[in-house]
């Protein structure tokens, strides 16, 4: 046994690498690829009261897309909202974290480690608790409304703060900050400082230097940040459920209902497949557009 192992192991780099990778790859295949195929096949079936009718059909997808029916209308609206909220979150997180990453990359000289720890520490504390903290802050009797009313700025609680898309966007931008800060910091840190000096020597103003030198060079980090926030937030469940209300519901809340109370696995599976395809399409589109843009620069 050991001999066989040793002989296989010493054969070639390819074989050696795949022997080492096999446990992780087998887990990904059995734990993710096969289950995803199962979801895909369930999306072509029909829920008949308690049993699933396995006759292949496209009906679930038609049900999802048919905007004239109530179900289809709700589902397409939620899909559109999930995507637009996630884009807003990615954009909002990007513009708020970019200056911070910029500052740490270019101005912080001592204790960079400490700054990096501080940037990422909130990410490691429970996601559920962070969302819940925002519920305490934005709620009708929450920190913001209560303080504004005590001071006397407002007489009624601000309705738009809680159970709205605004609440979802703020909460998610807070929850995913670390995922923007790190790629941005890494790409800014890599920029050769002499390029910036050269730009100044050649007469560029601060803004021109930023716009024509720093920003283009940080684009890989920007795209990384946008995608790494956009993709997972499309499927976020906790935030819309806790602070979204009816107005801020997203597609995952509906998927959860189909796999829970509503007990309609096929329609839930079809919704999940559509979500995954939309995410893939947006990712590809973002990549293509940025390639075009960077080629022109």
């Amino acid at each position: 046994m050991i001999n066989w192992w040793n002989s296989l192991y010493s054969r070639s780099d390819n074989a050696k690498a795949y022997v080492l990778l096999s446990p992780a790859l087998i887990l990904v295949i059995l734990g993710m690829a096969v289950p995803l195929l199962a979801v895909f096949s369930v999306s072509f079936t029909t829920q008949a009261s308690f049993e699933i009718d396995y006759t292949p059909t496209f009906d679930r997808y038609i049900e999802f897309m048919d905007t004239s029916s109530r179900t289809g209308n709700v589902l397409t609206t939620l899909l559109g909202r999930s995507i637009s909220i996630s884009f807003l979150v990615a954009f909002f997180t990007l513009i708020t974290t970019y200056p911070v990453a910029y500052y740490v990359a270019f101005y912080v000289k001592k204790n960079k480690m400490l700054w990096l720890v501080l940037m990422t520490l909130p990410f490691w504390t429970s996601y559920l608790l962070r969302v819940f903290a925002w519920k305490l802050i934005l709620g009708h009797k929450g920190v913001i409304n209560a303080s504004l009313m005590t001071v006397g700025f407002i007489d009624e609680p601000l309705g738009f703060l809680m159970y709205s898309q605004t609440a979802v966007v703020i909460t998610l931008a807070h929850a995913w900050a670390a995922f923007a800060l790190l790629p941005l910091y890494v790409s800014l840190e890599k920029i050769d400082y002499s390029l910036i000096e050269a730009s100044h020597d050649l007469g560029c103003t601060k803004f021109e230097t930023f716009w024509r030198v720093v920003w283009p060079l940080s684009l890989p980090g920007v795209i990384g940040a946008v995608l790494i926030i956009f993709i997972p937030t499309v499927g976020d469940y906790v935030t819309p459920a806790l602070v979204g209300g009816t107005e801020g519901r997203m597609l995952s809340n509906m998927i959860q209902t189909y796999f829970g109370r509503a007990n309609n696995f096929p329609l839930g599976a079809a919704s999940a497949v559509i979500m995954l395809i939309s995410v893939a399409l947006v990712t590809i589109a973002v990549n293509v557009v940025t390639k075009r843009l960077t080629q022109r620069l």
């Binding site: 979801v39 499309v234 995954l276 995410v279």
Partner: peptide, 12 residues
Amino acid sequence: IPEIILAIALLV
């Protein structure tokens, strides 16, 4: 991938 998709895949 969105976590909810991994979750329902394992559930199914």
